[in-house]
Design a protein around this nucleic acid. Sequence first.
DNA 1: CCGAAAAAATGATCTAAATCATACTTCGAC
DNA 2: GTCGAAGTATGATTTAGATCATTTTTTCGG
Lengths: 243, 243
Amino acid sequence: MKTVYLIEKTIQTNMLEKSHKHVTCASCLSRKNSLLCAISDSEIETIEQNKSCSYFKKDQPLFVEGSIPRGVYCINEGKVKIFARGEEGKEQIIHVAKAGEIVGFRAMFSGEPYTVAANTLEESNICFIGKSDFLNLVDTNSTLRNGILKELSKELGERASFIKNMAQKSVRERLASALIILDDIYGEEMINLSREDLANFVGTATETLIRLLKDFKDEGYIRTHVRKIELINQNGLISIAGT
Amino acid sequence: MKTVYLIEKTIQTNMLEKSHKHVTCASCLSRKNSLLCAISDSEIETIEQNKSCSYFKKDQPLFVEGSIPRGVYCINEGKVKIFARGEEGKEQIIHVAKAGEIVGFRAMFSGEPYTVAANTLEESNICFIGKSDFLNLVDTNSTLRNGILKELSKELGERASFIKNMAQKSVRERLASALIILDDIYGEEMINLSREDLANFVGTATETLIRLLKDFKDEGYIRTHVRKIELINQNGLISIAGT
DNA sequence: CCGAAAAAATGATCTAAATCATACTTCGAC
DNA sequence: GTCGAAGTATGATTTAGATCATTTTTTCGG
């Protein structure tokens, strides 16, 4: 009885924390390992006063393709999928962003509407910084600017490799590779994505994904806990994934 | 007799132009519609004194993956393929760069070795600007900097769509899409790529590509002149390519 | 705790595209 | 011009993975 009560309390506390809306940049732990790690106190102050911070439930959109970018989204807590929608709305997940990442700044520089969309993958706390505030910051802070140039360039390289993998690798190889990438993103937690989202990240049909996941389970590379996936032989997966 | 003589002379002149090494930035027509269109005379002067300019034969490497970026390449004349190499060296072409484009600046910002390689697709004149000169320019010229931010962001969006296409579209659709893109790149000229390169751009086997090209020919969308491809029904191809 | 709906799993079938094999063209070197 | 090699073309066969159909499990609201 008591145990149950305690567990319930813990859950409630967590949920309270997650739904709590006022995160300050100064106290934001996620900022520490983000692009915004090296901004001055006065710059933080300015951002602080103009940002808004909201709680998002699971699978809520931050922005959709075709809309005009009005600012950037800082993930304080939670995960966000960036995806392109194809025929009949089928999603291709391009990237899974985690706490500390800034989402949606590419479209602001390109001067065009979003070409991709972003949805939360789980309950998340996300702050919004308006376009002009963010661009001002980029204009005046060369460290941030260089960080952004570096980030954009790095991602461009990653996407080249993504394209190559889609073209040349089997689904099995791509799944192994996806699991390694996601495991890194989820860090301490276990990978926690619907089979459909995972299939849309790997770029395959949900049924195919489920079958291959079963193979990996049978071969001892992973364990599954309902929808959560635990890697138990990372090196094996890395070698399946290939170069 | 006289006619033949004239033609031969024209050819020789063209070749001379292509192999001619000393193009000045001030006179470079390709620069006009490039990222470097808005730099001052004194900046041009500095670049001019430090750049080198070389003639490349067909299929020569500008850089290979894994090597350290030492500068950027400005295409004065010719075309360059940017590609990622997979198992057994199979190439996935990510981008075809034409005159006016600057190639290789992404890796300079990322601070990492090249993740992709670049080869000329035809005889080309290409100038080389050293890393420090280029980075200085970027640091001091905010127009150029914004142009680069914009370019990087735009390409990031394009690559997201590339990934989606690889995952969700048939080879036929991707080929139609590739022909439209290449036709735009080649402009006045006809698309002029080996079947293998075209297959590596579309992301398919050379045999499959050749068959589909024949279909398009039979259906009246294209005409082929040995290796050159002429589009005769662009709208048809666009509608095959889909969104 | 129960029932419906969503998600996951499994099985059977079909097909787009890869692969393998071979022939035909084009091109550049001599 | 002729030869050999590379590039292009076509045909036959195989297969990875999509699609369709059904069952089982999980989730979640009342």
